[in-house]
């Protein structure tokens, strides 16, 4: 078979696994939260129900071309992010298309979906969408700064911007993981990770508890379904990225599930413990201590 075709098929397989994993996590995590709070909670397959419901709605409305394309951008961004990353270390099958670009491509490609989504949401003309975008973008710029410093610190440490190489360098036991070899960078990145996941205390962007304020305000039916698919894929892609950079990657799917789940739980725990930040607070917060840690990480790796 044509090697390209094989690659595409394996990529689709990856996508399928990740999608299901993402959807399940979406259901399981609230379920755990509910059980801890001694409530019954939603069924773990709730996310599947939502998607099916959205796709089977008969009323479908659109505000215009950008409104229509926005979710496409969003989902392309999520899938693309996954596609440009090696998922399972050492497995030829699950390298996806990571040979076409390095860490930088991944870092910048995150914004592809964000920007497209923001544009789509903006066309709806709903002020709440715009407010959500404003909040989201503001917060993103803030946590990206320590994140980048951390990533740069890793790049300095490993003298490469190639994700596979970074993962390779961490093999051989957890003492080789970046989180152990470069704790400062890891700290900066993991703090930034909280912002990237968009959970409490940084969830004012979507404001899930209130009447919907945030980019997807106007979306419904199939369009919302696309967004939900992305909401399943995109966080997992990010988790995989952090896993690759900080926790030595994964050599098999179970390892991947375990590591990503634990990383995910880190943001969940923080979210449970801390109250929500307002955007101006979170911006200042990210540009405070986390930024200093990031700078320190750079200095330490460069000079010591």
């Amino acid at each position: 078979m044509d090697p390209i075709l094989v690659k595409i098929l394996y990529a689709l397989l990856t996508l399928f696994i990740v999608l299901n994993y993402g959807l399940l996590i979406q259901g399981i995590v609230p379920k755990i939260g509910a059980r801890v709070g001694r409530r019954h909670g939603i069924p773990f397959y709730q996310a599947y129900l939502d998607i099916i419901k959205n796709y089977s709605k008969r009323t479908r409305v659109t505000h215009g071309i950008m409104f229509y394309i926005g979710p496409v951008f969003r989902l392309t961004g999520g899938i693309g992010l996954l596609m440009f990353m090696p998922v399972i270390f050492g497995s030829n099958m699950f390298q996806n298309f990571s040979f076409t670009g390095d860490l930088l491509l991944v870092l910048y490609f995150q914004f592809f979906g964000v920007l497209g989504m923001a544009l789509g949401a903006a066309e709806s003309g709903h002020p709440h969408s715009a407010i959500g975008v404003s909040r989201g973008l503001s917060q993103t710029t803030a946590f990206e700064f320590p994140l980048t410093l951390g990533v740069l610190s890793l790049a300095v440490q490993y003298q490469t911007l190639n994700i596979s190489d970074i993962v390779a360098a961490q093999q051989g036991g957890f003492m080789h993981w970046s989180i152990m070899t470069n704790p400062l960078a890891a700290a900066a990145m993991l703090i930034a990770f909280l912002g990237a996941m968009g959970r409490a205390p940084f969830d004012v962007v979507l404001a899930p508890q209130e009447i919907p304020i945030g980019p997807p305000t106007e979306y419904q039916s199939g369009l919302l379904g696309v967004l939900q698919l992305n909401r399943a894929i995109f966080p997992i892609a990010k988790l995989i990225l952090f896993m690759n950079l900080l926790f030595g990657g994964a050599t098999s799917w179970p390892e991947l599930f375990l590591k990503t789940f634990l990383i995910y739980m880190w943001s969940v725990f923080v979210g449970v413990v801390f109250p929500r930040f307002r955007v101006d607070h979170s911006v200042r917060w990210f540009l405070g201590v986390p930024l200093l840690i990031g700078i320190l990480a750079i200095i330490v790796t460069k000079f010591f």
Binding site: Y55, R60, V61, T62, H63, G64, Y68, S221, G222, L223
Partner: peptide, 8 residues
């Protein structure tokens, strides 16, 4: 999926 979406 959405070819019949209504422009509002």
């Amino acid at each position: 999926m959405n070819r019949k979406a209504r422009k509002i």
